[in-house]
Design a protein around this nucleic acid. Structure first.
Lengths: 341, 341
DNA sequence: CTGTTAGCGCCTTCAC
DNA sequence: GTGAAGGCGCTAACAG
């Protein structure tokens, strides 16, 4: 042991105590400013600080965690690290956590068999992490984690506590945006996977049509993979359609981008031949040709809110039943504006 | 304490021991299959297992870590969570780590002042994590971490141990690909940020020209932000150029995509007016119009290799001086093929 | 075959 | 103002 890279062995509280000829208790108090701290003479305090500095003392993270019964670690479980949404979520969670000295343990469950992810969570659940934030996977992880440690769900609204954005509102707004232009044949590209946010997005589309008294034509609805390749599937579906729609609401940017690129390559003009709009609004959407109309999802903010809710729970607040809903914003761009309304 | 969500208090080794009327030592052995395990009678072993099961016993992660002097946690520090490269790295690291029961602590240093990230690392360094994988930031984190815990560097080659992909080879190949078509006026879009991989990419471009006896025209080289907005900067630079190049090597997909979209919008035809090629080859590149020629970077594999190297070190191997270099692959697509050679 | 003992490094009453 | 003692939950000798 003490092999390459380890350098000089770390110094412990005891080392510091020894150096100043005092007990570890005093040193601990001085360093932590914990109860009884005021009673330590300013002088000894300075000595201790100096000695700690000199010995390069750092409290042992795990020992502290064991004693204080908290690890300052929060896990974020994500179903797909490759979705453009995910990094923003991560960024938000991480930034919020860091504000309070927490660290982020990332659980990327992309193509992880359920059993394995469950095993991982169980392992961590006991003294490994203080809390768990779950993105779109209450079904898989709720049963194993609930009741064992504080949880916050992301992108779901039928469980709690949760952070949700108005998913059905997003597609409803998009669909209405087409209806208001007098477009009636509006199709929908949805997901074969069915986390709550995706089913709600489809619901928003359907309800907008119904509210407007427009018929929902099932032949204008398709379901594809929520990956880039989903755009290819949607494109193929569109090509084979006899009676094509005039406009399409797509459930996620990812798919919209890739479908759009293929449509254009095949000669379909956007928005003249087909108007397009999508949900998420990642940065690239505004740069597409033509710029893609989107319902903007506050992904970063959602991550932040989830982390705050987690830390609130860790601080003792009871958040059961709470579902925070963040609004979406409609960003109208050229892809969705039909020439003659 | 024991507030909402905590459920029934967790059971400890002692609880299990009590239940079966035995000492914690025996229980620990039986459960861990550690030294001396074979000498426990099969019967008591079964009892213990059953009791543990019934009490829903899970070893306390931190207590175990404190005792065994390892946390099974490896941190990955990334400079920019939003770069399309990063999720692939994360995916690779995480998958490899998980194979051996390690977990990933993500340190997203996007827009983090240096001091703060250093503080974080120092905090974790002492008993919080077993090792640190650093992406493109040896300058910032090397000094604080080196010698304190095992490190692996990603995307650098002048430090070690490291995982590197042949960055200058990538751009050299791309540049030659243009030269072989008889193109002489080849420009370069590089980065204002200068991690090693970016300086090497520029070097590859320059050396390919020099080797071919072609002049390096500094007016054909610009430097932009490695974000999507960098594409806008590059586009503006290109527009203002009097003597335009026939081809452009771009240092990263991100920038290439966004520049390309703006070029096309402004009426520049690719590859007729300007041939384009870039480094990274994220999935979207093949879907662009026209499909973008790329040097493919094995990001996922790099992550995996870095994690393996970390775990090798954790297992006692000395990897100082080792730099693993992964090859890139040239993916020729329509964006780089000039009509008449 | 199993129990006892002794910590890992830290924090926190409780005495002095 | 400061020190001693106990213990978080677990593991690893060493006894029996």
């Amino acid at each position: 042991m003490n092999r390459r890279g380890q350098g000089e062995k770390k110094s412990t509280l005891k080392d510091v105590a020894q150096k100043v000829g005092m007990s570890v208790a005093t040193v601990s108090m001085a360093l932590n400013q914990s109860a009884g701290y005021e009673r330590i003479s300013a002088e000894t305090r300075k000595m201790i600080l100096a000695a700690a500095e000199e010995l390069n003392y750092q409290p042992h993270y795990m020992a502290q965690a064991l004693k204080k019964r908290n690890t300052k670690l929060v896990a974020l479980a994500v179903p797909n690290i490759y979705h453009p949404f995910t990094p923003q979520l991560i960024g938000g969670v991480q930034d919020a956590l860091r504000e309070n000295g927490y660290h982020l343990l990332l659980l990327d469950l992309t193509n992880s068999p359920d059993t394995e992810s469950v095993r991982t969570v169980l392992q961590l659940e006991s003294g490994g992490i203080d809390g768990l934030i779950v993105h779109s996977m209450s079904g898989e992880l709720g049963p194993v984690a609930e009741g064992k440690l504080p949880i916050v769900y992301l992108d779901e609204k039928s469980v709690s506590p949760a952070v949700w954005f108005d998913a059905d509102g997003a597609t409803r707004t998009l669909t209405r945006h087409f209806l208001e232009q007098g477009i009636r044949r509006i199709g929908y590209v949805g997901s074969t996977m069915t986390p709550e946010t995706y089913t709600q997005r489809e619901r928003g589309y359907r309800s907008a049509l119904e509210e407007a008294g427009a018929p929902v034509d099932e032949s204008l609805i398709c379901h594809v993979s929520p990956q880039l390749k989903g755009g290819g599937q949607a494109f193929a579906w569109f090509q084979n359609l006899k009676d094509k729609p005039e406009a399409l609401v797509v459930f996620t940017d990812n798919v919209a981008h890739s479908m759009m690129l293929q449509l254009i390559r095949s000669g379909v003009r956007i928005p003249e031949d087909l108007a397009l709009a999508s949900v998420d609004d990642v940065e690239l959407s505004a740069l597409m040709n033509p710029p893609l109309t989107c319902a903007w999802v506050p992904a970063y903010e959602m991550g932040k809110r989830a982390a705050y809710m987690m830390m609130d729970q860790l601080a003792g607040k009871d958040l059961s039943g709470v579902v925070e809903t963040l609004p979406v914003a409609l960003h109208i761009r050229a892809s969705s504006i039909r020439p003659h309304g």
